[in-house]
Simulated scan of single mutants.
Amino acid sequence: METQNSDTIDIDTLKQYLNLGIKLIPVSIYDNKAFIRKGKPRDFGTNDINEIQSLINGNGYRNGIGKEGKINLFRFYPVDYGLVVIDIDRHKNKDGEIEKNGLKNWLKIEAKLNLPQDCKIKSHTCRVCTPSNGYHLYFKLKLENEPKFTDDVEVLYTKAVNVAGSKKEGKVYRLVGSLDAIPTLPESLLKEMIVEKPPKREPQPTKLGRSPQNFSNGNKRLSDEEINAYKPYIGKYLAAKGFQINNIGKTNCPLPEHHTNGDKKPSAQVNQNFLHCYTSGGNYNIWDIAKKLNNNDFKAAIADVINTLGRI
């Protein structure tokens, strides 16, 4: 069993997240289940090491937010960065006996699937030892739906994850390996996951006049429901338009007005339903991008998306 060897926040580990472009979201000092402020958690994320150090020191950031005390815990959303985190729980009851042993179930999965060495728990190249003596196993993968395991092995994708280097209730999340060595989730492991289907959407009445009337491919109209249905395909659309998306979901920003001399180093993050530009701080869906690529003509943008991706 691997145990914690320090109760001190590990700044060097936190920097590894920042080097990957991951913004860290501070957690309230009063409640380790709540974020630092009410609202949209991602709005409070930061990739500024000076802000993080200020929060850890108890000096707060952004007009004094977090000055109530020293911040010890930070989180991020794996889905925003093309990552999946497998959470292997090992919880004890009040008598000190293990009542939730995800490790036992995970080892069965390893044996069944004969996973590569860098994906097995003992030799995983990017694993985190949690304060409850459990593990977070990091993998690269972009999904359209929410996956999950059963039996005390949880997949964290759209849920926030406590980051290595920070601490909870006095115990540090300790990184073993490196965030530069995250393996790709094997196909056999993906098939083993139970993938939840998105909830069935009730048909919405079409609001006449909201969408263009004629497209170059002969389509008459898209309903509001159809317009929303295209949003999760922003990555496929960008790829089809020639944008290279790397293994952590970053690409060159397609919005030239955000970059004086062009976006030479990929600085835009492709998420499930939108693209986030770190320079502008804004989020842009497939229609925002398509409109920009089609001379700000929304009619042409819809025709382009349909002609590129087909009917959804």
Score class of each variant (00 low, 15 high):
Leu103Asn: 09
Ala164Leu: 11
Leu73Cys: 11
Glu146Tyr: 06
Glu154Ile: 05
Leu189Asn: 03
Met1Asp: 08
Arg127Ile: 13
Ile49Pro: 04
Asn228Phe: 01
Gly177Thr: 04
Leu156Phe: 04
Arg221Gly: 07
Ile194Val: 09
Lys250Ala: 00
Gly64Glu: 13
Leu293Ser: 04
Asp48Gly: 09
Leu293His: 10
Leu275Cys: 07
Asn63Asp: 12
Asn247Pro: 03
Asp95Gly: 05
Tyr30Trp: 05
Leu113Lys: 00
Thr8Asp: 15
Thr158Met: 03
Lys148Gly: 15
Ser166Leu: 00
Phe298Gly: 06
Thr158Ile: 01
Phe149Ala: 07
Pro78Cys: 01
Leu107Phe: 06
Asn72Gly: 01
Pro131Met: 14
Asp152Glu: 07
Val128Trp: 00
Lys207Phe: 14
Val161Asp: 00
Pro186Gly: 08
Tyr173His: 06
Asn19Met: 12
Ile86Pro: 02
Val128Ile: 11
Asn294Gly: 05
Leu185Met: 15
Leu309Phe: 10
Gly21Thr: 08
Asp95Thr: 13
Ile306Tyr: 09
Glu154Asp: 03
Thr251His: 02
Asn247Glu: 11
Cys277Thr: 10
Leu18Ala: 10
Leu255Trp: 04
Glu99Arg: 01
Lys167Ile: 03
Ser28Gln: 05
Lys33Glu: 15
Gly66Glu: 10
Gln53Pro: 09
Ser280Gly: 12
Lys299Glu: 12
Gly66Thr: 06
Glu2Pro: 12
Tyr284Glu: 07
Lys112Met: 06
His276Ala: 09
His259Tyr: 05
Leu255Lys: 03
Leu18Gln: 10
Gln53Lys: 07
Asp224Lys: 01
Cys253Leu: 02
Ile286Lys: 04
Leu179His: 06
Gly177Arg: 01
Asn133Met: 14
Ala111Gln: 15
Phe243Ser: 07
His259Glu: 05
Lys200Phe: 00
Asn214Arg: 14
Val172Trp: 07
Asn145Met: 11
Leu73Pro: 00
Gly39Arg: 09
Trp106Lys: 07
Arg174Leu: 11
Thr206Val: 13
Gly58Arg: 10
Phe274Ser: 14
Pro198Ser: 03
Asn307Tyr: 00
Glu146Arg: 04
Leu309Lys: 00
Lys291Val: 00
Gly282His: 13
Asn214Ile: 14
Glu225Val: 08
Asn294Val: 11
Gly170Tyr: 02
Arg37Ile: 03
Asn93Met: 07
Leu24Asp: 02
Arg221Thr: 13
Glu68Asp: 15
Ile9Ser: 08
Asn63Arg: 11
Lys70His: 14
Ser54Tyr: 08
Lys207Cys: 12
Leu208Met: 14
Pro26Leu: 04
Thr251Cys: 08
Ile29Ala: 13
Lys112Ile: 01
Thr13Leu: 09
Arg221Cys: 11
Lys142Trp: 14
Cys119Phe: 06
Lys236Trp: 13
Lys70Ile: 01
Asn307Glu: 15
Gly82Arg: 11
Ile86Glu: 07
Pro203Asn: 08
Lys168Trp: 05
Asn57Phe: 12
Pro199Cys: 09
Gln213Ile: 15
Pro183Gln: 07
Ile88Asn: 03
Tyr233Cys: 00
Glu146Gly: 01
Lys159Ser: 11
Ile286Ala: 10
Lys291Phe: 05
Thr251Ser: 00
Leu238Cys: 05
Cys119Gly: 01
Leu208Gly: 12
Leu141Phe: 10
Asn19Glu: 15
Thr279Asn: 10
Ala301His: 07
Asn217Phe: 02
Ile121Tyr: 10
Tyr30Ala: 08
Gln16Ile: 01
Ala300Asp: 12
Leu179Thr: 04
Phe35Ala: 08
